[in-house]
Design a protein around this nucleic acid. Structure first.
Length: 582
DNA sequence: TAGCAGCGCCAC
DNA sequence: AAACGTGGCGCTGCTA
């Protein structure tokens, strides 16, 4: 049955839904919001669908109207759908009604882009509406129970959330265009479906292999612990019951420092870097213990808890606009930080009858540096398809390319990667295991060869200090809050951040474009994205479509890269495997 | 008991 | 004195 008020129209039956569909069909844009009984589309149930268009707001009770197909045409195309945190609504509509919202405008992402990476206090709808409209929005109803009989107040709040999206869109759209953020906002909005579907697809963990690895690593960890403890004097007054006495906690840096002191070794801290310089077997044993303990605690003992009971897969969350550089962040769990060793990655497998297509950009950050600096040495090396590290080594050390030694190439590689992070001579010296003077000379020689790179990095750092903001090739904005009255340490840190931003940020631009293109290329295949690790994409697909999927993923990624890189070619490496390894 | 800072380390 | 950019997260040890 239907109810009318001035504010909204409650829809509980198919006739009302058809009327709503007609209203949407004629609209240019629709404010859209949902209410659900929880956060996960795999566990919670969608309760309300609110649609604001053409001066009307429809509130659909999805418990009553179970079939939303009359709305499909308007939701999967046609008018612009304006949402706040679109990934949430997109996931529910896809998982529970098979509807893929398009096209999208996300007011949360818009607000985050406008802030240029300086995370505002909150990006809730009420906060954003409060900031950009002269209205206050009360969201007390948000925390209420959406599974029972709904109060008039709840329905009104729900309707208001959808309605307010329209004026908010108008304002944010205007600001995005004015700030030159139109192109990057279209990348972000376009990537929402790819990211939502990647989360829904999830990743399969071979639990048997994982448990076996856990046993092996635990045994190694226990051995390392025994060796480590044997270096230190036994605590006095050990109780007769073995193991109950006060024991050294190997996970406590504080206690470890004390233990080292007790054998005459004074440590400033217990970091890996520090421990590597300590000439005592206890330092080696501690490093080994730490590594194994990290792998047990962070991965082996916790990941099974993330396997969803309904899907048997791990559904991580990807955060689209949390990182100032534009990269994705990932949590619950962070599947972007799984150890790279084969013994770990081989536990992440394709489902029955499927394979994984693993594709990554080859040296994308260095290609971006070549592009933005325009350095002829860099650009030409990439154009000729040469091994850039070898070329760098040859020029730095003044030897023919064929005579470059392993050590020389490795040093060049470390400089190549390090300078994108604003690395200095001291830290380079430490990594190369040489003295600071030699490191400084290497850097000087490097910049003598690649003068445009040096000039670009300096100019970028200075521009950040002067203008307080930088942009990537897509126009993504990053503001640098305070640039005056900085200590020299703060100034140095800001300069390094600044030098890195256009590189890392443009890489993120390309990755998000690639997400859009890959998602769209795979639409008519039995294939889907399951992970994205900055410049690497993992797709799971039916075995017999592997070749086709691999070729489409590659061309989508190349197209994304070439959209932003004009002077330098883009290369992608693709592998097909049942396991996540190349 | 929950929340948080500091330390330390995994990824790119 | 400074030290390599972006994150998430486990553990300790403290506080409210």
């Amino acid at each position: 049955m239907e109810e009318r008020t001035a504010a909204f129209r409650l829809i509980t039956g198919p006739e009302g839904l058809r009327e709503a569909a007609r209203a949407l069909a004629g609209a240019r844009r629709v404010g859209l919001d949902i209410e659900a009984t929880g956060l996960s589309p795999l566990d919670a149930r969608m309760r309300l669908l609110q649609l604001a268009a053409g001066g009307e707001t429809f509130v659909v009770d999805v418990f009553e109207v179970k079939d939303l197909s009359p709305l499909r045409e308007a939701l999967e195309g046609g008018p612009l759908k304006v949402l706040h945190n679109a990934k949430y609504d997109y996931s529910f509509l896809l998982a529970q009604h098979g509807i893929r919202l398009s096209p999208l405008f996300d007011t949360m992402l818009a607000a985050q882009l406008l802030d240029g990476g300086e995370q505002g206090p909150s990006y809730s709808l009420e906060a954003v509406a409060g900031r950009y409209l002269q209205e206050t929005v009360d969201k007390t109803a948000r925390r209420e129970d959406w599974s029972k009989e709904l109060s008039r107040e709840q329905l009104e709040y729900a309707a208001r959330d959808a309605a307010i999206l329209l004026p908010l869109h108008e304002r944010l759209q205007e600001l995005l265009e004015r700030e030159g953020l139109g192109p990057v906002s279209r990348i972000e909005f376009g990537a929402v479906p790819a990211i939502a579907e990647m989360e829904l697809a999830g990743i399969r963990l071979d639990v048997r292999r994982w448990r076996e690895l856990e046993r092996v690593v635990r045994r190694r960890r226990d051995e390392a612990a025994r060796r480590l403890e044997s270096h230190f004097p036994q605590p006095e007054g050990v109780l007769p019951l073995e193991g109950l006495g006060p024991r050294l906690n190997l996970n406590s840096p504080q206690q470890i420092m004390e233990a080292f002191r007790s054998i005459g070794i004074e440590l400033p801290d217990t970091r890996m870097w520090t421990l590597l310089t300590v000439d005592h077997p206890a330092a080696r044993d501690l490093l080994e213990y730490r590594e194994l303990q990290k792998k047990l605690g962070t991965y082996l003992e916790t990941y099974e808890g993330f396997v969803h009971p309904k899907t048997g897969r791990i559904h991580a969350s990807f955060l689209q606009c949390r990182v100032p550089t534009g990269r994705l962040a990932c949590t619950n769990p962070n599947v972007q930080q799984i150890p790279h060793e084969d013994e770990f990655r081989r536990c992440f497998v394709a489902g029955e009858g499927n394979v994984l297509v693993i594709a990554d950009y080859s040296q994308i950050e260095l290609r971006i540096l070549a592009e933005v600096s325009g350095d002829p040495g860099f650009v030409e090396a990439f154009r000729r398809g040469e091994d850039l590290h070898r070329v760098t080594a040859a020029t730095m050390f003044g030897v023919p390319k064929e005579e470059v030694t392993k050590e020389q190439r490795s040093a060049a590689k470390r400089i190549n990667f390090g300078l994108a992070y604003g690395r200095g001579p001291r830290s380079l010296a430490a990594q190369l295991g040489t003295d600071e003077e030699r490191a400084r000379r290497l850097i000087d020689e490097y910049f003598a060869t690649y003068g445009r790179v040096q000039r670009y990095l300096n100019e970028t750092a200075n521009r950040a200090l002067k203008e307080g903001a930088l942009r990537t090739l897509s126009g993504r904005l990053r503001k640098f809050g305070r640039t005056r009255g900085l200590s020299s340490a703060e100034r140095g840190a800001l300069k390094r951040e600044a030098m890195n931003y256009p590189i890392q940020g443009t890489s993120a631009d390309i990755a998000k474009l690639a997400l859009i293109f890959i998602h769209s290329e795979l639409r008519d295949l039995d294939a889907r994205l399951i992970n994205c690790i900055h410049d690497e994409f993992v797709v799971e697909c039916a075995e017999e479509q592997a070749e086709e999927a691999a070729s489409r993923v590659r061309s989508a990624m190349v197209r994304a890269g070439e959209r932003l890189l004009k002077r330098v070619p883009v290369e992608v490496e693709v592998a097909v495997s049942r396991e996540w390894r190349k």
